[in-house]
């Protein structure tokens, strides 16, 4: 990586890097409490992939540790979807389905051409394909499972729906055909939900208060608590090493 990232590239790297970092931390919160051992390992592995992406992206902006551990809430540029609490397992899977579908399409587009993210995107798109595969299989299993699992999966899809519009708001520094990305995302999610016997949520995908807000540094209530936990050790013991 060169030390002279231009301002627009840095802005985009911060948004995409924060998405990866924050979702990585959320998934890491499942360690020790996932429903089965295999899922514990799966969620931790997905978190690790995302952390690797975050490290590459944040290193384009500045010092990765300072960016992760010493920024205030308002300085984070992640979308509000990824900061949503894990909820029950269905909520985590719905968040994974929405986000991995988006990220797979996004990296697929960034991988073509010779933009500043092409190298990372070409690599990460292959990893994210497994994240998407994982989310799809669980959506099918829960949606087309028992009455209880179906209800919970539907509730989770409905609850997170309002955060999905933000993913297709313009990101400073990224030159993308967002309407095409959004259409492809809707087609893919609609297909999976249909096969899972779930109903595509009917509510709005953005609220007046939430449209694009995470990318501008406005976050939901639970994000502050998540950051407090994530940053606590580094802030209490600056420079601590193993």
């Amino acid at each position: 990586m060169t030390g002279t990232t231009d301002t627009l590239t840095a802005a985009a790297a911060l948004a995409l890097g924060d998405d990866a970092l924050v979702l990585s931390h959320r998934l890491g919160e499942w360690a020790g409490s996932a429903p089965v051992l295999e899922e514990e390992v799966a969620l931790a592995n997905i978190a690790l992939d995302l952390l690797g992406q975050a490290r590459v992206l944040l290193s384009l902006v500045g010092d990765e540790d300072e960016l992760a551990y010493l920024r205030e809430e308002r300085s984070f540029r992640n979308s509000q979807l990824v900061e949503q609490p894990n909820g029950d397992f269905a909520h985590t899977i719905a968040r994974q389905l929405y986000f991995s579908t988006y990220q797979h399409l996004l990296y697929g587009r960034l991988a073509t051409g010779d933009g500043p993210f092409a190298g990372l995107a070409a690599k990460a798109v292959k990893e994210v394909a497994y994240h998407q595969d994982h989310a799809e299989h669980w959506t099918l299993r829960l949606g087309d499972g028992t009455t209880e699992s179906h209800q919970r999966m539907q509730r989770a899809c409905d609850a997170l729906w309002r955060y999905t519009g933000e993913l297709f708001q313009p990101v400073e520094g990224l030159d993308l055909d967002l309407p095409a990305l959004e259409t492809a995302w809707l087609d893919s999610v609609t297909d999976v939900l249909g096969r899972a016997t779930l109903t595509v949520p009917s509510g709005p995908r953005t609220g007046a208060w939430s449209a694009g807000a995470g990318r501008q540094g406005l976050h939901t209530e639970s994000f502050g608590r998540m950051l407090a936990e994530m940053q606590h050790l580094h802030r209490s013991h600056p420079g601590a090493t193993w």
Binding site: E38, D49, Y130
Partner: peptide, 13 residues
């Protein structure tokens, strides 16, 4: 297939 992710990210169980 038991799980798409195993002891490391590069393996499935």
């Amino acid at each position: 297939l038991l799980s798409r992710f195993s002891s490391t990210a590069c393996k499935a169980l």
